[in-house]
Amino acid sequence: MPSDESSPSAAKLLRERYARRLPGSLGELTGPAHGSVQLPLHVAWSGLTRFDLDRPRSRMSMYRTVLAEGQSDDLVTLLNRDILLSQWPVLRTLISRAIRDVWESAFPELTAVRPAAAA
């Protein structure tokens, strides 16, 4: 059955939904860099709601959740620019393609980041 050319695909709608939430620049991401963060119920409505930013797995889990479920205000108040940039090489493999494509298209500096060398 041919698709209706006038209706956008589900993937396109999803990308548009994520794109509407983006900050104007990565510099707007002024969230905490350390300590414990309690996510609001509309962001973390299931599972863990408190995350320790000083623990790499906990931090990565929080960023995945906020990128997927957060609204514009959540992104700027919960995400930190420096952490996002430093964690992006791994984080990009843990999020959906739609989220990754939207963020990398809007912020090419994310694709320039290379994984940190093992210490």
Rank of each mutant, 00 (worst) to 15 (best):
A33F: 00
R81C: 14
V102R: 07
R59Q: 13
L67E: 07
R57A: 12
P56T: 08
S7W: 09
R64N: 09
G27N: 05
L26Y: 00
I95V: 15
V113C: 12
N80G: 06
L84A: 10
L79N: 04
R55L: 12
T49Y: 01
P40M: 01
T111Y: 02
P56D: 12
Y18H: 13
S3E: 15
D52Y: 02
H34R: 07
R20P: 00
P89T: 10
L48S: 12
R97M: 09
Q38I: 03
L41C: 00
L85T: 11
P32E: 10
D4L: 11
R97T: 13
P89K: 07
S7L: 14
R20C: 07
R114H: 11
R50Y: 02
R92A: 15
S25E: 02
L78P: 08
A117R: 14
H34T: 08
A68W: 03
G24C: 00
S3P: 12
R92C: 14
R59K: 13
L14H: 06
E28V: 00
S6E: 14
P23R: 08
E16Y: 05
R57H: 11
G31I: 01
E16C: 06
P2E: 15
G35A: 02
H34K: 01
G24A: 04
V76T: 14
L67Q: 05
A44H: 03
A68G: 12
I95A: 09
R17M: 11
Q71G: 11
D54A: 04
D82E: 14
S72P: 09
A98Q: 14
P8K: 08
D82N: 14
P40F: 00
E5D: 15
L29K: 05
G31L: 02
S25Q: 06
D101R: 09
M1C: 14
S86G: 11
V76F: 03
A68C: 05
L41F: 03
V76H: 02
S46G: 02
A11G: 09
E104I: 03
T93C: 10
E28H: 01
M60I: 10
A116P: 02
G24P: 01
L14C: 12
V43G: 03
V43K: 01
E104C: 13
G47A: 05
T93S: 13
T30D: 05
Q38G: 00
S6T: 15
L85G: 11
D82H: 10
E69W: 04
E16Q: 11
A112H: 15
R21T: 04
S36T: 06
D101S: 14
S25K: 08
L94T: 13
W45A: 12
W88I: 03
F107N: 04
L78C: 04
R64A: 10
D52R: 04
P32W: 00
A106Q: 09
S7I: 15
R59Y: 05
E104A: 07
V76K: 09
L91P: 07
L48R: 12
P23D: 04
D101Q: 14
S6N: 13
W45V: 03
D74W: 06
E104Q: 10
